[in-house]
Design a protein around this nucleic acid. Sequence first.
RNA 1: GGAGAAAUGGCAGAGUGGUCGAAUGCACUGGUCUUGAAAACCAGCGUACCGAAAGGUACCGGGGGUUCGAAUCCCUCUUUCUCCGCCA
Length: 422
Amino acid sequence: MLQVDFIKENFLKVVDSLKKRNKDYSSDLKKIIDFNENRKKQQTKLDALLSKVNNLSKQIGELFKNGKVEEANELKKSVEKIKPEVKLLQDLLNSNNDDLQELLCSIPNIPNELVKKGTSEKDNEIIFESAFKISDEKLDEHWDICEEYNIVDFELGNKVTGSGFPVYKGKGAALQRALINYFLDKNTSSGYTEVQPPILVNEDSAFATGQLPDKEGQMYHISNDNLYLIPTAEVPITNFYRDSIINSSDLPIKLTGYTPCFRREAGSYGKDVRGLNRLHQFDKVEIVRIEKPEDSYKVLDEMVEHVKNILEELELPFRILRLCGGDLGFTSALTYDFEVYSKGQKKWLEVSSISNFETYQSNRLKLRVRINEKEKKLAHTLNGSALALPRIVAAIVENNNSPEGIKIPKILHKYTGFKFIS
RNA sequence: GGAGAAAUGGCAGAGUGGUCGAAUGCACUGGUCUUGAAAACCAGCGUACCGAAAGGUACCGGGGGUUCGAAUCCCUCUUUCUCCGCCA
C-alpha cells in the first residue's frame, strides 16, 4: 500500500511511474488525496468535540463529588445534546476512511525506474542468458518421460484430488526431497535461517502481504475457519513481522523456508498446464528478507546472484528477465524472473521470481525499523523463490534424458544417493 | 468437543465506574558520583492521528453496547491456561 503523503508530495511522478503499468491512476490518486484531506478535517472536528465531552464529564464527576446534583444534571443534559453530533461525525469519518482504504488498496506499487513500460511478458528485458545451444532435435516432453520411468503419476493425483495435484513416486519423490534439501542447505549456508511456517494463514496475514484483496480468487479458502492455504511461503514468513518495530541493529533479517504452495490458477488453460508446468499444489523453497530502505536494491542484486549460482550448480540453461510494467506483480517495485530452458517442450519455464516490495508490504504490515531514539521508518521487504520445484524437475527430466536414463545433476548426488533415474 | 479461569506498557504486575495513558519493580537511555567499573542517587523512557507549536484525540486481546463518563459493567469473537474427552 502506498503512503498518502508520498502520493501527495510526488503526485506527477507517481502518476507517471504507474503509467508503466498501462493504466492512468491519476483520478484515483486525486481522490485519495481528497479523502485524506477530508479525514484530517473530520478528525480535527471530532477531536475537538470529544475534548469538550471529556471536559464536561470531568466537571460532572467533580459536581457529584461535591453533592451538587442539580448542577450536574444540568451539565448532563448539555453533553447529551452533543452526543448525536459525535455519532454523526464518527460515522462520517469511518465511512470516509473505509473509502480511502479501499482506494489505496486498489493502487499497485510504483515501478522502480529500471522497469520499462510494456504490455505483456513479451516486453520483459533479458538481462542474462547462460551459454547453450538450442537444437532442433526432437526430444521427449517430461510428462511422457515421467510416465516411462514411473516417477510422477498424474492420473493417480486426478483420482485422489483432481488435476494439478500429481503424485510423485519412487525416484521422482526422492528427487523432490533431494532438491528441497539442497536448496535449503544452499540458502542456510548463505546466512538464511531456516523456518517452517504454517501453511494456512488468516485474513490479516493474507491482506498484509497483498494477496487480499488483489488475488482473492487465486487462493484456496477454508470457509469454516476463515483461513487461506498459502500460495507462497512469503505470506506466513513475512507476516512474522507484522505490527512490529525492529531495531536497525537486528537487520538484516534473512529467512528461508520450504512449504507446499497452493494456487487455484483460475483461468489457466491449454498447454501451459500440461504435466508439471502449472500445478495447484507444488513445492517451493522461499527466501525472505527485511532490510533498511537504503540497502534493499543492493540486497535484491545479491539475491539474484544467489539464485543464479544455484541454477549454475544444477547445470541448467537459464536466463534472467527484468519484468516490464505490464508483467510486474501488483505489490512489487522491481522483479527479476528466472527461467530455465526445457529442451523437450522447447520452452522457457519460470522457476523463480525475486522482488523488492520497498515499503508497499511493510506499510500494510506496519513493519518499521527504529533508526535511532526518535526516528522510525518503514522497512523494505524482499523475497524470492530459491527455488520452485516442479519446473526444475521438468527441466532436469527433459534436458538430462539419455539412453541410460535421466542424469541427476552432480550437485544432487549426495542428496539422492543415485546418479540416474532409469 | 465439554467445564472453568484469564488477557493491562519491552517483561513482571497493581488497578472493579470519575483526578487512569495507567501505580510499583525489572530492563533500557541520559546524568551525578568514581582513575575506571559496579553500587547508589537524579531524570527520561509506548503507539498512532491532527497541529508550526502549545496542545488535543484514540488505544488496557479484537469488535459492538450501556453511561454525562469505561481498563473497570454487558454482549460477542479470538487467544492462553487448568481439568475432562479424543488423538499423530
